[in-house]
Design a protein around this nucleic acid. Structure first.
Length: 1004
RNA sequence: GGGUGAUUAGCUCAGUGGUAGAGCGCUUCGUUCACAUCGAAGAUGUCAGCGGUUCAAAUCCGUUAUCACCCA
C-alpha cells in the first residue's frame, strides 16, 4: 500500500458517505454503550423549497460536531432531520411552475387538485437540501426524516407521518383551553399573496419616500391664533389660521381618517382641541368632518405635531383609535386596491359624519366604504397620486414661496409650490413577496401568546434552558416580555387547514354583527365535530336535525340550515378555509418529530432534546415559539441548551445577498477544496457571539491543513509505522515519545473543554496548533533520526498512536479525511465514525520530558535564528561548542543529540571555548558557540546580540519595577509574585550570557 | 429615538486582570526522499480616543467617536 501525495476529497467523500449510509452509522442509538446517557439534537428544519446556503453549512457543521463527538463517546445519540412545509414559499414555487407550464391556475383546478400538485412537487424536488447536507457530511439519522405536513389528508404514500395529527391535536387543545381565538384585528397583510402574515415575516426597510403637508380646514370656517415659540419661549411665528397642518407619507389613507390627534401638552393646538376639521379630499359636497383629539402618541417636535389617525391602515393609529373610540374605516381590498364594495360614497360619508358628530354609535362599520367612486378599484399608489393632485389643485397643500429669475427678462418670479419633503421612510415589506405590506383589518386566528409566555420566560430565567451566548437572553426576554398575539391563520391552501367548522348560531339576533351569526365547532375530525354540533343543535323543539358538511361558503345571513321536511332539518357545516402558519407546526418540531402525541420510546428517550443550534435571526421565529409551545403542550422545555451562532458574511463583512452578488455557495467550496476544509474553516471562525467572515482563501488554507495531516500519515506509512503498530496506548521510554504523548493528552483536554463550552473556534484552532505545530513541525522531525536506533519500535508505536489519536479527535470537525486515514492505517473492526473517544488526560504528561523537549526546541530555534541572521548557508553544517552547561542542559543534550544535530544542522556537540569567528547562542543553563569561519562579520554579530540584549533588558526592567513596588508584594497573589521572580531570574541569566558573548566579541 | 454588539499586526480574527497571539499576506533563504497545498528565518501593534478603579487594564467601570445589527 502506498498513499497518494494528496487526499482526493472528491472521490473519497462520495465513497465514505456511501459507506456510512450502508452501515447505518448515523441511526439513533448507533455506537451507544449500554446504559449510556442520551444526547439528542433536532435540526432546525430547512424550508422544503430551500437549497443549501452557507448559513446552513455553518449551522449543520456545528451540530454535526456535537453529534459526532457524543456518538464517539458512546452516548445514545439522535440527530433528527426533517423539513418544514413553508406555506407561502412552496405555494409560490408550485404556482410559478404551473404558470411556466401554461397549466390552469390554482383557483381553476381547485384546492384538492392543487394540493396534489404540491405533494407531487414535494416528492420530486423537495429533497434537494437533504442531499446537500449529506455532501457536507452531516450525520443525521436519515431514516427518521420528518416533514411538518406528513400525515395530512391527501398526503401520498411515504408521507404518512404523525405531524398533522400533532398539529391538529395542539390546535384543538389550545382552542378549548381558550389559548386560541378568532378575532378582527389589524394584521400585516401581504397584497401579493393575499394572506395575513405575522410581524416576524415583515422586513422593515428604509426606502426613499415623501412627506406631504396638507391643510385640514376647521369646520365652519373657524379660525384660531397659531403661535410658535423657540426653546426660550420667544414667539417666532404668530398667525391666524383656519386649518390644522398635517404631515403624511400615505395621502391615500386620508380617506379613512377618523380623527386628527395632537399631544395633550402641545400649546399650539390647545385652542382647537375638541373641534372638528375637514378632510380635504373627496367630492366637495360630502366632505367629512373629523374631531381633533389629544393622545400621547403624536410627537410635538415631528412635522407639524398633528397626526391624522387612520385606524384601519396603520398600527400606531390603530392603537390611538382603540384608546379614543375612533372608528376604523377600511379602504382597501385583499390586493391592496381601493375598495369597490359596500355602500356608496355618499351614504358612507353621511354615516361617518353622524358617527363623528356623536349622533350615531360606530358599531360595525364594515359596509362603510369611504373611497369616492372615482377612486374605487384603483391601486393604492395610483390613488395616492390622484389624492395629492386633487388637494394641490384645491390649494390645500401647504406651500412655500419659490423664487426664480426669468433669464430673458431678468424679472423676478414668485410662485407658491406644494411642500413635499423627499426623505427616507421605513416601510414594511413581505419577506417572501417583496411587496409593501398593508396593515389590514381582517378576521384571523390568534394564539393568545400573553397567556402562555410566562413559562417560557421562567425556564430561561431559572436556567432550565440556557441560551448562549448570554447576550441573546436579553433579546429573548425583551421579545417575550412585550409579546403581541400571534397571527396564525394564513389565507393559503398549502398547510394544515384550521380544524374549525362553522354552523348557524341558534342564539342570534338581528342586531348581532355578522361574525357572531356563526357558531364555531373545533375538533380534530369530522366525527368529533358532528358530535359537538348535534349536541348543540339538539333542541327540545321537536325538530330532528342532522349534520352535513360543505366546502361552499354560504351566505352569512341565511346559511347553514335546510328544511328537508316538516320536523326535519339539515345543518350545514363548512370548514374554515384558512391554514395555519408554518411556524405553528414548526413550533412543535421537538415533540412532533419524536412521535407525539403517541407515547413513543423515542419521545421518552430523547425528549427534552439537548442542544438547539441556530442562527440569531430565528430566536423569535422559532426558539421562543418552541419554548412556549412545548411548555404549553407537554409542560417541559424542548431543549436544555440553545447555541446561537453568527451570520456568515463575506470577506469584507458584508451580508451575503443575491442582489450584491457576494453569495458564497458552500457546494462550490466543497467541489473546489472538499467538505472537510469548509467545515474546519467554519468551525474555526465560530467564535461565540461573532459573525464569521468567510473567503475562499481561508478554506484553501485549511485544505492545506488536510494535506498536511495526510502527508504526516503518508510519511509514517512509508516508514512502516502502521505495519509494526500494535493496538493500544504505548508506554515509551524515550523523552521525545513521552513528550508527544503528553502533548496529545493536552490537546485532548483542551478539545473536550472547548467543545463542552461550545467554543468551536478554540476546538478547531487547538487541534490545528497541535497537529501542525507540534505533531508535524516537531515530532515527525524528531522521529526521523529515531527510526534506526534502539528506540525505533517504540517510536513507530508512538507515532501510530499519536496519529490515530489526532484523527480521532479531528473526526467530528473533519469526518471524511479522518475516516479515510483510519481505514488506510490499520485493519479496523469498525469505522472511525464509531471510534472510541479518548479519555486520557494529565497522567500522560511527563513534566521532565516536557522540560527537556522544550529546551531542545529552544536550542534548535536559537541556532537556526543565529545562522539565518548571520547569513550562514542553510546547507552548511557547523560545529556546536559547549562553552558552559549545567547538568540539566548536558542531560538534555546527551539524550537528544541526534535530534539537535539534524534539525539545527550541527555536528555533535563538544566542549570548548568560545573564540574568534564564532557566533553565540544561549539556552537556559548553557552557552554555545558556533564557529562560522574567519569571515564572520563582527559588526553584524554585535548588532544581533545587542538587539537581543536590549529586548531582554527591557523586559527585565519591567519585571524588576513591578517587584520593587511594595504594593505589588503586598497585594498580588503569591503565585504571581513567584512566577514574576522566576521569569526575572531567567531574563537576568539570559542577559548575562549575551553580555558575556558581547564582551568576548569585543576582546577578540 | 431605544437596545445590543464591535473597534487588537497590511487583511480576517482569537485573547474574562499578570505586560499581546494565530491564520492569510509581506521580506529573505531553501530541490537532504511526508508535504512547494512545503520548510527555515524575519518585519510589522499608542490593543479607537479620554478619564476612572487596581500593585497591575486589551481585559473591569464611565465617557466620546466611528461602524454594524435589532426594535420603534
Amino acid at each position: 500500500m502506498s498513499m497518494d501525495k494528496t487526499f482526493d476529497a472528491a472521490s473519497a467523500e462520495a465513497r465514505i458517505a456511501a459507506a456510512w449510509e450502508a452501515a447505518d452509522a448515523f441511526a439513533a442509538g448507533a455506537n451507544a454503550k449500554p446504559g449510556a446517557p442520551a444526547f439528542s439534537v433536532v435540526i432546525p428544519p430547512p424550508n422544503v423549497t430551500g437549497s443549501l446556503h452557507i448559513g446552513h453549512a455553518l449551522n449543520n457543521t456545528l451540530q454535526d460536531i456535537l453529534v459526532r463527538w457524543h456518538r464517539m463517546q458512546g452516548h445514545n445519540t439522535l440527530w433528527q432531520p426533517g423539513q418544514d412545509h413553508a406555506g407561502i414559499a412552496t405555494q409560490m414555487v408550485v404556482e410559478r411552475r404551473m404558470a411556466e407550464r401554461r397549466e390552469p391556475g390554482r383557483r381553476e383546478i381547485g384546492r384538492e387538485a392543487f394540493l396534489q400538485k404540491v405533494w407531487a412537487w414535494k416528492q420530486e424536488s423537495g429533497g434537494t437540501i437533504m442531499g446537500q447536507l449529506k455532501r457536507l457530511g452531516a450525520s443525521l439519522d436519515w431514516s427518521r426524516n420528518a416533514f411538518t405536513m406528513s400525515g395530512a389528508p391527501g398526503a401520498p404514500v411515504g408521507e404518512d407521518g404523525n405531524f398533522h395529527d400533532a398539529v391538529i391535536r395542539v390546535f384543538v387543545d389550545m382552542y378549548h383551553k381558550g389559548l386560541i381565538y378568532r378575532g378582527k384585528r389589524l394584521v400585516n397583510w401581504d397584497p401579493h399573496f393575499e394572506t395575513a402574515i405575522s410581524d416576524l415575516e415583515v422586513e422593515n426597510r428604509e426606502v426613499p419616500g415623501h412627506m406631504w403637508h396638507f391643510k385640514y380646514p376647521l369646520a365652519g370656517g373657524e379660525t384660531y391664533e397659531y403661535v410658535e415659540r423657540d426653546a426660550d419661549g420667544n414667539v417666532t411665528l404668530r398667525e391666524t389660521r383656519d386649518y390644522i397642518s398635517i404631515a403624511t407619507t400615505r395621502p391615500e389613507t386620508m380617506l379613512g381618517d377618523g380623527a386628527v390627534a395632537v399631544h395633550p401638552d402641545d400649546a399650539r393646538y390647545a385652542p382647537i382641541v375638541g373641534k372638528l376639521c375637514e378632510i380635504p379630499v373627496g367630492p366637495k359636497e360630502h366632505r367629512r368632518l373629523i374631531p381633533i383629539i389629544t393622545d400621547e402618541y403624536p410627537d410635538p417636535a415631528f412635522g407639524s405635531g398633528a397626526v391624522k389617525i387612520t385606524g384601519a391602515h396603520d398600527f400606531n393609529d390603530y392603537a390611538v383609535a382603540q384608546r379614543n373610540g375612533i372608528p376604523l374605516y377600511a379602504l382597501m381590498d385583499t390586493k391592496g386596491a381601493m375598495r369597490s364594495d359596500g355602500l356608496s360614497y355618499e351614504e358612507s360619508a353621511t354615516l361617518a359624519g353622524q358617527i363623528a358628530r356623536g349622533e350615531r354609535e360606530a358599531g360595525d362599520v364594515s359596509q362603510i366604504n369611504l373611497v369616492p367612486e372615482d377612486l374605487r378599484g384603483l391601486d393604492r399608489y395610483e390613488a395616492r397620486e390622484r389624492v395629492v393632485a386633487d388637494i394641490t389643485a384645491e390649494r390645500l397643500a401647504v406651500t412655500y414661496l419659490h423664487k426664480s429669475i426669468d433669464k430673458e427678462t431678468g424679472a423676478e418670479h414668485l410662485e407658491l409650490r406644494p411642500l413635499v419633503d423627499a426623505k427616507p421612510i421605513m416601510q414594511p415589506f413581505g419577506d417572501r413577496s417583496g411587496v409593501v405590506i398593508e396593515p389590514m383589518l381582517t378576521d384571523q386566528w390568534f394564539v393568545d401568546t400573553p397567556k402562555i409566555v410566562q413559562p417560557a420566560i421562567d425556564a430561561v430565567r431559572d436556567g432550565r434552558t440556557r441560551i448562549m451566548p448570554e447576550q441573546h437572553e436579553k433579546v429573548y426576554f425583551h421579545w417575550l416580555e412585550n409579546i403581541e398575539p400571534w397571527t396564525i391563520s394564513r389565507q393559503l391552501w398549502w398547510g394544515h387547514q384550521i380544524p374549525v367548522w362553522y354552523g348557524p348560531n341558534f342564539e342570534f339576533s338581528d342586531e348581532m354583527p355578522d361574525e357572531d351569526l356563526v357558531k364555531e365547532f373545533c375538533a380534530a375530525n369530522r366525527t368529533d365535530v358532528e358530535e359537538l354540533a348535534l349536541n348543540y343543535y339538539s333542541r327540545s323543539d321537536g325538530i330532528e336535525r342532522r349534520v352535513e358538511f360543505s366546502d361552499e361558503l354560504p351566505n352569512r345571513r341565511a346559511f347553514g340550515l335546510r328544511n328537508d321536511a316538516p320536523g326535519k332539518q339539515t345543518i350545514i357545516l363548512y370548514r374554515d378555509p384558512d391554514v395555519l402558519d408554518t411556524w405553528f407546526s414548526s413550533g412543535l418540531w421537538p415533540i412532533g418529530t419524536l412521535g407525539w402525541p403517541e407515547d413513543t420510546p423515542e419521545l421518552r428517550r430523547y425528549f427534552p432534546t439537548d442542544t438547539l443550534v441556530t442562527g440569531f435571526d430565528i430566536i423569535f421565529f422559532w426558539v421562543a415559539r418552541m419554548m412556549m409551545m412545548q411548555l404549553a403542550v407537554v409542560d417541559e422545555v424542548p431543549f436544555r441548551n440553545v447555541y446561537v451562532h453568527g451570520l456568515v458574511r463575506d470577506e469584507k463583512g458584508a451580508k451575503m445577498s443575491k442582489s450584491k452578488g457576494n453569495v458564497i455557495d458552500p457546494l462550490d467550496l466543497i467541489d473546489q477544496f472538499g467538505a472537510d476544509p469548509l467545515r474546519f474553516t467554519l468551525t474555526s471562525m465560530a467564535a461565540m457571539g461573532r459573525d464569521p467572515k468567510l473567503g475562499p482563501k481561508h478554506v484553501e488554507a485549511n485544505r492545506n491543513f488536510v494535506t498536511k495531516i495526510w502527508n504526516a500519515t503518508r510519511f509514517a506509512e512509508m516508514n512502516g509505522v502502521f505495519a509494526a503498530a500494535s493496538a493500544g496506548q504505548p508506554q515509551p521510554a524515550h523523552t521525545v515519545n513521552r513528550w508527544i504523548m503528553g502533548e496529545t493528552a493536552r490537546a485532548r483536554l483542551a478539545l473536550d473543554e472547548a467543545l463542552a463550552a461550545y467554543r468551536f473556534n478554540d476546538a478547531a484552532q487547538g487541534m490545528y496548533a497541535f497537529v501542525w505545530g507540534k505533531l508535524c513541525d516537531w515530532y515527525v522531525e524528531f522521529a526521523k533520526p529515531l527510526f534506526d536506533g534502539e528506540h525505533a519500535d517504540e517510536t513507530r508505536a508512538t507515532m501510530a498512536w499519536v496519529i490515530e489519536q489526532a484523527i480521532t479527535m479531528l473526526h467530528p470537525i473533519m469526518p471524511f479525511v479522518t475516516e479515510e486515514i483510519w481505514a488506510l492505517t490499520g485493519n479496523r473492526a469498525k469505522m472511525l465514525v464509531h471510534g472510541d473517544w479518548p479519555a486520557y488526560g494529565a497522567e500522560l504528561i511527563d513534566e521532565a520530558a516536557d522540560r527537556q523537549m522544550n529546551w531542545v526546541i529552544g536550542l534548535i530555534e536559537g541556532v537556526r535564528s543565529a545562522r539565518a541572521q548571520m547569513g550562514v548557508p542553510a546547507a552548511a553544517k557547523l560545529d556546536l561548542i559547549v562553552a558552559q552547561a549545567d547538568d540539566a542542559a548536558r542531560a538534555a543534550l546527551a539524550a537528544n543529540g541526534p535530534l539537535v544535530e539534524r534539525l539545527a544542522r550541527v555536528n555533535p556537540a563538544r566542549d570548548g571555548e568560545a573564540g574568534r569567528g564564532m557566533i553565540a547562542v544561549a539556552a537556559p543553563g548553557a552557552s554555545f558557540a558556533l564557529p562560522i569561519g574567519d569571515v564572520i562579520d563582527a559588526a553584524a554579530e554585535t548588532a544581533r546580540l545587542e538587539k537581543a540584549l536590549a529586548k531582554t533588558e527591557k523586559d527585565a526592567a519591567g519585571l524588576r519595577g513591578r517587584l520593587s513596588n511594595p504594593k505589588f508584594a503586598q497585594n498580588a497573589d503569591p503565585e504571581v509574585i513567584e512566577e514574576t521572580r522566576a521569569k526575572l531570574a531567567e531574563l537576568d541569566e539570559d542577559a548575562a550570557r549575551t553580555k558575556g558573548a558581547l564582551e568576548q566579541l569585543r576582546s577578540l
